[in-house]
Design a protein around this nucleic acid. Structure first.
Lengths: 160, 160
DNA sequence: AATGTTTTCCGCAGAAAATTTGGCTGCTAA
DNA sequence: TTAGCAGCCAAATTTTCTGCGGAAAACATT
C-alpha cells in the first residue's frame, strides 16, 4: 500500500478530472517545478496508483443508444457457474461493466447498446448461452444524475 | 449529432484506453500526419464528443475501502421528491454515481467509502435526511469482473 | 549537536512534442 | 469554369518533456 503525501493527492485529484493537463501546468497547480512534478507522476504510474488514462466519449453526441442496469441471480451458487458466467460476460462488448455483489443478487451488469432490440438479443444470450439457470432483471437508465467521476481523496489527507 | 468517419472512430477507440498517448503516436496509429490528427482531436473535443480525460486511480493500492451498490425505491413518485433526493445525493461525495432507472427501483447508487461503518453513516443520511420515505437495499461489491472500460464503437463503422 | 543517509527539490539544456502556418488537392455549388 | 470550403501534409516555430548534477530538506544515528 503506497504512502501518498498531500502533494501526491493533489496531483491525483487534478489528474482524475484533467488527465491531459500538461506537466508544466500541473506542476504550477501543485507548486512544484516541472521536473519534480513529472517525477511524482511517473512514480504514481509505476506504482500502479494511476492505472490508466481514459478519454470519456459522450455517446449521446454520436448516436442514439440505451443504457441498462441488469441484476443477475444464479440459481446455483457454485464456483464453476460463476466462472462460466464471468467468461460469458467477457465475450459481450456491450456489457461494459460487471461486478459480483453480496445480497439478493449475484451480479450487477451495465450494458450499453444501440437500441432495445439489440438489448433483447444480449439478454437472450445471457440467459440461453449457459446450461444453468439465471434470473435477469433489467432496468433502463433514464437519467444519469451523477456520473462516475472523480473519487474524493480529501479524506486521505493526513489526518484521514 | 456529430458525423464521425472511420478515422474519428479509430481515434476515439484509442483515446478511450490511452488518453495520454502523444499526438505523434496517435497520428501514426491512425495513419495521419500529426497536424491533421491534432485537428481532428481538437474538433472531437470542441464538439463534445470527447467530454473529458480521466486518470483512473487504483484506490486499492492506496487504502482500504468498500464499494457498494445501493438500490433506492421512493415511496412516492413525485417530481419534488425525486429532485430532493438528487440534490441530497450531490452533497455526498462518497456517492460517486447515481442513475434513475425504470422498473422496481428508482435509483441505483454506487458508493465508495473507507469502511462499513462510514457506509452506515451515509446510509443513515440517505434515509433520514429527507422527510419522505425511501427504501434502500445495499449490495457490497465483492469483485469487479469487468470494470467500466472502453465503449465498443466498431458497430458505428460505416454500415452501423 | 554533529554526522551520514535518503529523499526531494530545482535549474538547465538537449530532445521531443505540440501547434501554427501556408500551400496543395479534391469536392461542391453557383 | 470557378469561388468557397474542407481535409491533408510539410516545414517552421513554440512549448513541453525529461534526464542529470548538485543543492536543500528530512530523517536517523550517534
Amino acid at each position: 500500500m503506497t504512502k501518498l503525501d498531500r502533494t501526491d493527492l493533489k496531483i491525483l485529484q487534478i489528474l482524475q478530472d484533467e488527465a491531459r493537463i500538461t506537466n508544466q501546468d500541473l506542476a504550477e497547480r501543485v507548486s512544484l517545478s516541472p521536473s519534480s512534478c513529472l517525477q511524482r507522476v511517473r512514480r504514481l504510474e509505476s506504482n500502479g496508483v494511476i492505472s490508466a488514462y481514459h478519454a470519456k466519449v459522450n455517446l449521446a453526441s454520436v448516436c442514439r443508444h440505451v443504457m441498462c442496469i441488469a441484476t443477475v441471480t444464479m440459481k446455483n451458487h457454485t464456483r464453476e457457474e460463476f466462472r462460466a458466467f464471468e467468461a460469458l460476460i467477457n465475450t459481450i462488448p456491450e456489457v461494459v461493466e460487471c461486478v459480483t455483489v453480496s445480497g439478493e443478487f449475484d451480479f450487477f451488469l451495465r450494458i450499453i447498446c444501440p437500441d432495445m432490440s439489440s438489448y433483447l438479443e444480449i439478454n437472450e444470450r445471457l440467459v440461453s448461452s449457459v446450461n444453468y439457470l439465471v434470473t435477469i432483471n433489467t432496468h433502463v437508465v433514464m437519467n444519469e444524475n451523477k456520473k462516475f467521476g472523480a473519487i474524493d481523496l480529501s479524506s486521505l489527507d493526513e489526518g484521514g
